[in-house]
């Protein structure tokens, strides 16, 4: 039964990847990427990694696909990095790809049995943190430095994006999304989805402590809803030079660093959570992080500021 399920998910993944690489139309490849992302998210569910599935569906497929689709629409001509590949290069690339696949596959089949695992070590200190979901605990407690640096990477990407904008648009809003009036159906959909989506985002944020979900998945959902509102003309895009945008971007990493420093004084090391107040501190830091992530994601998908004034 599980083999059948795995097969029904693995085949569309392979077919989707082949389609994305082989199709002549870039637009078709982009829509293929959306479908591929959804099947990949289902594969993560089949691997019992629901937290990863939520992130993959939201960021890996959704946000990346949207970003590239928007890029494709905005590009005046395709940027070519070389000549179209000749038959020789194709054969060489095919051989190299086959070799890499075979080597990876052979390594996977030769893995040691039983597999080394940190699962037991992850579960043991959970009660002290007041968190029931081990993945959330790894993200916010055991490997908190990774999460801090992940937010910093998002910020660096936002800085890079601003630096790549035109001088004329410096500090302005991103290019307006649809050039014309948004369709009434889109506006209606946005009005319908946004309130329900916000409630679901709050639920995801809160339930992340004990079940699949968490600050990241919740903030992605809020960012997606904001983008939907921008597309429907119901909300403005964040003004990249605005005072609030900068503050919102900074609050997450700052709160994280402050909490980490408190950890030095109270628990003996940077980013250690002092036991009696671990849960409230974690929630406060996660809230601040969520604000920064939402603004960073919206800015990254919306693109660099290019006009003096938005709409």
């Amino acid at each position: 039964m599980t083999e059948l399920l795995a097969l029904t998910l693995a085949l569309p993944l392979l077919a989707g990847a082949l389609f994305i690489v082989a199709t002549a139309s870039t637009r078709a490849a982009l829509f293929g990427f959306f479908a591929f992302g959804l099947f990949l998210a289902l594969a993560w569910v089949a691997l019992d990694a629901v937290d990863v599935a939520l992130t993959e569906a939201a960021i890996g497929g959704g946000a990346t696909g949207l970003l590239l689709l928007r890029l494709n629409g905005r590009m005046r001509h395709p940027v070519s990095l070389g000549e179209p590949a000749g038959p020789r290069l194709k054969i060489a690339a095919g051989l190299l790809a086959a070799l890499v696949t075979l080597a990876l596959g052979a390594l996977l089949l030769a893995l040691p049995e039983p597999a080394p695992s940190l699962a037991a070590a992850t579960v043991e200190p959970l009660p002290a943190l007041g968190i029931g979901n081990p993945v959330t605990a790894v993200l916010i407690a055991y490997r908190a430095l990774d999460t801090l640096l992940e937010i910093v990477v998002l910020l660096i990407a936002v800085v890079g994006l601003r630096a790549l904008g035109t001088d004329r648009g410096w500090g302005g809003r991103p290019v307006p999304w649809p050039e014309g009036e948004p369709s009434p159906a889109l506006v209606f959909l946005a009005r319908l989805l946004i309130p329900a989506g916000l409630v679901f985002a709050v639920y995801l944020f809160w339930v992340g402590a004990d079940a699949p979900g968490g600050k990241f998945q919740a903030s992605t959902l809020v960012a997606a809803l904001w983008l939907l509102a921008i597309m429907a003309g119901l909300a403005p895009a964040p003004c990249s030079g605005g005072r609030w945008t900068g503050r919102a971007l900074a609050i997450g990493p700052l709160a994280f660093i402050v909490a980490g420093t408190i950890g030095i004084a109270a628990a003996g090391s940077f980013l250690a959570w002092p036991e009696p107040v671990a849960k409230p501190m974690i929630i406060a830091v996660e809230l601040a992080l969520a604000v920064s992530i939402v603004v960073a994601l919206v800015l990254l998908v919306a693109g660099p500021p290019e006009r003096e004034t938005g709409r």
Binding site: T26, L89, L96
Partner: peptide
Amino acid sequence: LFGLTGAALVGIGLFGLIVHPTAL
């Protein structure tokens, strides 16, 4: 099976990365 699918995805992606001339 999922592991082998992942390995195949790496191969397919690598092929596309080399062969396609356009940046997108």
